[in-house]
Design a protein around this nucleic acid. Structure first.
Length: 232
DNA sequence: CCAGACGTTGTT
DNA sequence: GTCTGG
DNA sequence: CCAGACGTTGTT
DNA sequence: GTCTGG
């Protein structure tokens, strides 16, 4: 099974769906957001202005920022203890908006097939995330980074993957974004996979995770083959 | 005490 | 920054 | 995750 | 084969 994923997002659609006060100007719809690139996010700073965060969390204590290249996911099961994440778990939570994500399914013959997953409704959703601020030097501007929380797969995702991103129910997004300190244990239940989430998987026409395929035509989801219901 | 790690996924 | 291992 | 690189010397 | 960058 594959694990990391890339996202797609349309900021204007997200703004409407989540009643955001604003989204960053000039952030055009994206069809292939890979780690290290900017993602559309809402932090627990107590307002509803979406912001851009670099995907790949760099802890405040990091000397070498390339550590962010590996901290692109955080396991929900161990968030509270991991030195790289526990501070952010207590103080700096965020949601990362997406209207779909790619996962690479391993086939019996060992080949990998990119699948595009989204809500059956097509609506955008919020992924649980953590964020941090990293100061390169006194003279340089602070870098805001984030990581996406993962969990075990629900029944729909299990045939495709061993892990999945934590998709937050609309009703608990504001709980996850409570400003300031929160008892981490109270938040753990929010990170369990949603079994009832109506998801649909699509086969993608070709590999999408390349700088050269960042165009809508190549990733527009095709009817799944086999259809999603046969993946179960 | 200091030095070094601090992560995930997937694969073997 | 904080913990672990030597 | 996949795609692509995989290097040194010297100069700014 | 393994690491880095996207």
């Amino acid at each position: 099974m594959c694990g990391r994923f890339t996202l797609t997002v349309n900021p204007e659609v997200v703004q409407l769906a989540f009643a955001l006060e604003s989204v960053p100007a000039g952030y055009a719809p994206r069809y292939n957001i890979a780690p290290t690139q900017p993602v559309l996010a809402l932090t627990n700073e107590g307002h509803r202005r979406a912001t851009l965060l670099r995907w790949g969390l760099i802890p405040a204590w990091a000397k070498d920022p390339t550590i962010g290249n590996s901290l692109i996911n955080a396991r929900s099961e161990t968030l509270a203890e991991k030195p790289a994440f526990r501070h952010a778990f207590r103080r700096r939570r965020c949601v990362i908006f997406a209207d779909g994500f790619y996962e690479w399914q391993r086939l019996p013959d060992g080949r990998r097939r990119p699948m595009y997953i989204r809500l059956t409704s097509g609506e955008p959703f919020a992924l649980a995330g953590l964020w941090e601020v990293w100061q390169p030097s006194h003279s340089e501007e602070a870098l805001r980074t984030c990581t996406i929380v993962t969990t075990r797969p629900n029944a729909f995702m299990a045939p495709i993957h061993s892990r999945m991103p934590v998709i937050l129910d609309r009703a608990v997004v504001d709980d996850w974004l409570t400003p300031g300190d929160v008892d981490p244990l109270e938040l753990m239940p929010l990170l369990a996979p949603l079994e009832t989430l109506p998801l649909t998987a699509y086969e993608v026409s070709k590999a999408v995770n390349s700088p050269h395929t960042d165009v809508p035509d190549l990733i527009r989801p095709l009817p799944a083959s086999p259809p999603p219901d046969r993946l179960l």
